[in-house]
Design a protein around this nucleic acid. Structure first.
Ligand SMILES: Nc1nc2c(ncn2[C@H]2C[C@H](O)[C@@H](COP(=O)(O)OP(=O)(O)OP(=O)(O)O)O2)c(=O)[nH]1
Ligand SMILES: [Mn+2]
Ligand SMILES: [Mn+2]
Length: 392
DNA sequence: GAGAGGCGCCAC
DNA sequence: AAACGTGGCGCCTCTC
């Protein structure tokens, strides 16, 4: 099945890639030149070492953090803290955004397409610790989606002439899996009422009605929700939310206030993992976590977070893999000539003849939702269109 | 020129 | 950068 998906590939819009690349290249020129001017001496903006030299020695800015290797960080989160202190910061950040698009997506991908204009990834089955697939050569699981540039990037991936893309993505999938495993009444209740926890968190964070939340705001809420359930600390939360560390501590306390059963589940899961030396997913996949017994507190804490994450992320991976087998085996989808082309962790993308797309979408949704029965419903969001931007 | 490690950053 | 986790890839730097 995965080999079929790899062989089939996905169609790309060369003209869209080309015009996007032209605009992005102009931005790289512009911001690159401004960085040179503001630095006062030639500097390779692509070199974090040279950049640190300019920012923290020449210009005397105060470093906002260090890298794991001990160097002064020039990562975007560290630079944003210096925003406003010197105009070069904004220019570096703008350069980086454009350069990322050029170097990772816009230049390489059109060159990798075959004679029919299709791009073929590899779906790796043994590359992750949790049971997820990975994608490489090129990676089609990390195509930009955020902001206007994200939408434009996704619109570069299209259906073949006469066909449509059908996208299906599990709603809040790891929160639902967590509700199932933990049996926490507050979580179970939320999903039995078909609530959108990401939107709810976004509404709280941005202080607006849940119905008026933008996709990017909702993505921000995901980071908070998954961050918190997988053990994010108050310092990072404070930074994410732009609040004080004390406020962040209170936020975390309030977040888990009504999730006592969830907390107890974490305890049981860790106890069990300590005893056995591994954790187990829904389908029985195991991950060994020897660091749970480490004398190094940091390594042990990391292993605890990994234990929790692996059960949930790995079970979500089990679920979609099973669904993919059902999709592949479905007679009606085969008759319709609706074919799986991509998997993006909890999303499936099919290519189907225009006239068949609607029926294919309904079948796909049903297969995904009903692939297994949890204590909460599995919900699938659908999209259909000429481009991946519309199908997501 | 190849390969490794570090950094940085895209996605889920 | 930080007590979220899971990935892959481009560029730089250093080594051989
Ligand atoms: N630990 C962690 N996991 C994440 C993060 N982003 C996504 N994931 C995992 C958990 C998600 O349920 C799963 C699928 O990602 P999606 O973007 O589809 O989000 P989700 O399904 O939760 O919401 P949605 O589809 O928008 O209703 O990937 C993250 O920032 N941290
Ligand atoms: Mn989803
Ligand atoms: Mn998704």
């Amino acid at each position: 099945m995965l080999a079929d998906m790899e062989r089939r590939g996905v169609c790309i819009d060369f003209a869209a890639f080309k015009s996007f690349l032209a605009e992005v290249s102009a931005l790289i020129e512009l911001h690159g030149a401004r960085v040179q001017e503001l630095a006062g001496s030639p500097v390779n903006v692509r070199s974090s070492q040279q950049l640190a030299e300019v920012l923290f020695k020449k210009l005397g800015l105060k470093p906002a953090g260090k890298t794991p290797g001990g160097a002064l960080s020039t990562g975007s989160e560290a630079l944003e803290r210096l925003s406003g202190q010197h105009p070069i910061i904004e220019e570096i950040l703008a350069f980086r955004v454009a350069e990322k698009l050029r170097s990772t997506y816009l230049e390489p991908m059109p060159r990798l397409a075959d004679a029919e204009g299709r791009l073929h990834t590899r779906f790796n089955q043994l590359a992750t610790a949790t049971g997820r697939l990975s994608s490489s050569g090129p990676n089609l699981q990390n195509i930009p989606i955020r902001g206007p540039q994200g939408a434009r990037m996704r619109a570069c991936f299209i259906a073949a002439p006469g066909k449509l893309l059908v996208g299906a993505d599990y709603s809040q999938v790891e929160l639902r899996v967590l509700a199932h495993f933990s049996r926490d009444p507050a979580l179970i209740d939320a999903f039995q009422r078909d609530q959108d926890i990401h939107s709810r968190t976004a509404a709280l964070l941005f202080d607006k009605d849940a119905s008026r939340i933008t996709p990017d705001e909702r993505r921000g809420a995901k980071t908070i929700n998954f961050g918190l359930i997988y053990g994010m600390g108050p310092q990072k939360l404070a930074r994410e939310l732009g609040i004080s560390v004390n406020q962040a501590k209170k936020f975390i306390a309030r977040y888990f206030e009504k999730l006592g059963v969830l907390k107890a589940f974490y305890e049981t899961l860790i106890e069990d993992a300590l005893l056995r030396g591994f954790v187990t997913t829904l389908a029985g996949r195991r991950r060994l976590l020897p660091e749970l017994h480490s004398r190094n507190q940091q390594a042990q804490a990391q292993a605890r977070r990994q234990a929790v994450n692996t059960v949930i992320q790995g079970s979500a991976a089990d679920i979609i893999k099973l669904a993919m087998l059902r999709v592949h085996a479905d007679q009606r989808l085969a008759e319709l000539d609706a074919r799986l082309i991509l998997q993006v962790h909890d999303e499936l993308l099919l290519e189907a003849p225009e006239a068949a797309a609607n029926e294919a979408a309904q079948i796909l949704r049903r297969l995904m939702q009903e692939v297994t029965t949890l204590l909460v419903p599995l919900k699938v969001d659908l999209g259909t269109g000429r481009t991946w931007a519309e199908a997501h």
